[in-house]
Amino acid sequence: MTGRRHRRDAAPTPGGEGRFEGYDVMAQSPFWDPVTAAVVRGRMAQERALAFFTSEEADICRALLDLVLANHGAPRVPVLEMVDQRLFEGQTDGWRYEDMPEDGEAWRRTLRFLDQDAREAFGSGFASCTGDQQARIVQGVQDSDAWHGLPGRHVWSLWTRYACAAFYAHPWTWNEIGFGGPAYPRGYKVLHPGWREPWEVAERGAADPLPWSHRVEKARRAHELRLGGRA
């Protein structure tokens, strides 16, 4: 964990992580056009009922998505619900690899395979494995050429595309990364590197008390520890 905890009520970030203390992009929503504001607010409506995944698939999928996104602490972005909704609506990227089934079927199938792998390796379903066990299985998919008859890199592409498109659509992640969010009709007027709009928030420790290279190295080590100390 590399970011200092925020006051969660004021400016939520996923797991309380982030470096833009008190920055709440939704505080800017009165300055957005009503159509955009409605779309973003609708995205924040919590606890949608699942429409695509079975409850068994949902457990596996939640574990996978939260792992890939390190979406662990509260408040937690409802990534599973967002992915479920998207698959239910059949909102694809507009293409599929020839050697993969269409997206919905590909999700169902790969979740089943994850569960199979978990039972074979650790004697329990993927969702009830420890985080480290899950991480090792998932890293195995990323590293594989062929995984249960599917190309590993195309499975990886499917998972990360859906996971990231949902996670980084959520305003809490914008708070975490300092992104300005929707900007119509207001636009921007301060366009120089190192300068900010009056409403943008300075990064905590902008002078890098912990330099970037250390921060990312720390994250790498944490990731490798999960994978059982592999280099």
Binding site: T2, L69, A70, Q142, T160, C164, R215, V216, A219, H223
Partner: peptide, 8 residues
């Protein structure tokens, strides 16, 4: 992915 993705 995971922590490293988030840090970047």
């Amino acid at each position: 992915w995971g922590e490293v993705l988030r840090e970047y």
